[in-house]
């Protein structure tokens, strides 16, 4: 975690030239998402409420237990890591315990490791005499994947050690956390980032990397394809830049795995079964993703001008069913065929 915290600042343009076989670099070059991970809470884009609370804690007020939830790439992990870093500086190794889904987090670990860590008493001064908060921080990232039993064990520890320890839980879906825990935490929802802010951030990064984005039209598109997921937008831009040498609309579609609109419309306009068979086979052979298609289809159907309400209703209903089945592992070819049949039927009697 220490090593990790050191990286990630909008630093001077470390332009990644073609690395010859033997170039030695001081800092291993990291993908943009890590390189530009917010270093202080002021770098966090959007999420005003959380930033406000964290800022108050930095200036001395008490930190509540925290629960961050929201979709991927909206800054949850970044926010708490930046705050921890600013709170504890170089003693964060002793004061912060970070456990994520890749660590063992069964009941036993919560009972032993977390409890032992929580019970340590800490002073309110650093070794060098400066003052710092007199508590420790336990970060449980990706808490969606903790079992209920482990969460129940956690609940007791949280209660007992509030004096010396603060907990921060992070997850994508708040419904996965048991109510006794959510009620002990201040909850913060990380919203998908607002479009203008994402664009601003992307522009900063592009400037630092020396990437030409023209009038910024292309950034708009990058944002549209990524639904407020800044990490995805950054990765997409970097990949596009690295793969094509420039950022283009088609490039973005390709690296984000979006299904081209043409195919979405084609699917909606299918008229008979044999057309459907051909389409589905080709679609899957070309390795497009069925779940992505469904996602795009859903917004196309809802806003479509030439479908009647009845048609929209029929298609959307099946869409929901198929999307659920896909998520649970149903075969793509089956679900697409099923949905396709519904579309054919709906098209033939408006």
């Amino acid at each position: 975690m220490q090593a990790f915290l050191k990286t990630g600042k909008i630093s001077a343009t470390e332009k990644a030239g073609p690395s010859g076989l033997k170039t030695t670099k001081k800092k291993p070059p990291a993908p943009w998402v890590e390189k530009y991970r917010p270093k202080t809470i002021n770098d966090i884009v959007d999420q005003g409420e959380v930033v406000q609370v964290l800022r108050e804690c930095l200036s001395g007020s008490d930190l509540p237990h925290l629960l961050f939830y929201g979709p991927p790439g909206t800054g949850k992990t970044s926010a708490i890591l930046a705050a921890a870093r600013q709170l504890f500086g170089d003693i964060s190794r002793d004061r912060v315990l970070e456990l994520n889904a890749s660590d063992e987090r069964g009941i036993q670990v919560i009972r032993d490791k977390v409890k032992a860590f929580a019970q340590l008493t800490v002073s309110s001064t650093k070794p060098d005499g400066k003052s710092c908060p007199s508590y420790k921080l336990v970060i449980l990232d990706e808490a969606d994947s903790m079992t209920n039993a482990a969460q129940a064990a956690l609940r007791r520890t949280m209660e007992r050690e509030t004096r010396t320890t603060r907990f921060c839980l992070i997850c994508n879906y708040v419904s996965r956390i048991i109510p006794p825990i959510t009620s002990r935490c201040s909850k913060f929802r990380f919203k998908p980032l607002a479009k203008e802010n994402v664009i601003k951030r992307l522009r900063e990064v592009c400037d630092c990397e020396g990437v030409d984005v023209g009038n910024g039209e292309i950034l708009h598109q990058a944002v549209d394809t990524c639904d407020g997921d800044l990490r995805r937008a950054l990765t997409a831009l970097q990949c596009c830049q690295r793969l094509l040498g420039k950022i283009t609309a088609e490039g973005l579609i390709e690296v984000t795995g979006i299904v081209p609109d043409k195919l979405v419309n084609e699917f909606l306009a299918i008229k008979n079964y044999s057309e459907l068979e051909v389409f589905v086979e080709k679609f899957l052979m070309d390795a497009y993703s069925a779940s992505q298609l469904l996602e795009q289809l859903s917004s196309t159907v809802v806003s479509s001008g030439h479908l009647t309400n009845k048609q929209k209703c029929e298609i959307s209903e099946k869409l929901a069913i198929c999307s659920h089945r896909l998520l649970e592992g149903g075969a793509e070819v089956m679900q697409l065929t099923d949905l396709g049949c519904t579309i054919i039927m709906a098209n033939s009697n408006p």
Binding site: A290, S291, L326
Partner: peptide
């Protein structure tokens, strides 16, 4: 296929 890969992973990779 990426249909069954969780979005959190997709957002971390070049696909």
């Amino acid at each position: 296929s990426i249909s069954r890969v969780i979005p959190a992973i997709r957002s971390r990779c070049l696909t």
